[in-house]
């Protein structure tokens, strides 16, 4: 097989994969999130077309209203403390609603967090031991 044919075949394979993946997403009616958070926090920047809305509303995946805050013109938002899940962040005012972001929260695994915690604890214990032994030997 020539290099030209190999490239064509590779391009075709990529195209088939893309169609399969995008087709599946469209078929399920699920749009990819605008942002993914590993620690439950997200920052949303203010944009000029947000003026005129009155509330920032956060809805969970099932569309249930979960929190709402007043909009202060020109002021961005820093959200925190969200659990695993998908959140739709909307602006509302009068009869109008505008979705400004879809956020996917997927926290770090607890196993890796506890491993790091354990490593920190060991390191800290060893530091105390070293200081105690050093102080005792030079008193």
């Amino acid at each position: 097989m020539t290099w030209g044919n190999r490239w064509r075949l590779a391009s075709l394979a990529v195209l088939i994969c893309y169609c399969f993946v995008s087709g599946k997403v469209m078929a399920d009616g699920v749009e990819p999130p605008d942002a993914i958070s590993k620690d439950g926090t997200v920052n949303l920047d203010w944009q000029s077309d947000y003026a005129g809305y009155e509330q920032l509303v956060i809805r969970n995946a099932s569309g249930e209203r979960f929190a709402a805050y007043p909009v202060v013109e020109g002021q961005s938002w820093s959200l925190s403390g969200l659990s695993d899940g998908t959140y739709h962040i909307e602006l509302s005012g009068g009869n109008e609603t505008k979705t400004i972001s879809t956020l996917q929260v997927d926290h770090y695994s607890l196993r890796s967090a506890l491993s790091l915690f354990g490593a920190g604890l060991l390191l800290f214990g060893y530091l105390i031991f070293t200081l105690k032994r050093g102080t005792a030997s030079h008193d």
Binding site: G40, G81, S83, L110, A113, L116, F117, G120, L123, F124
Partner: peptide, 26 residues
């Protein structure tokens, strides 16, 4: 309010926060 709107802040097994604990000590 925290339980409803920011539940992870009261979670003692909040992974990023558990990672942060000894990091801040060091």
């Amino acid at each position: 309010t925290l339980t409803t709107q920011q539940p992870e802040l009261l979670n003692l097994l909040f992974p990023a926060a558990v990672m942060f604990f000894f990091n801040n000590i060091f």
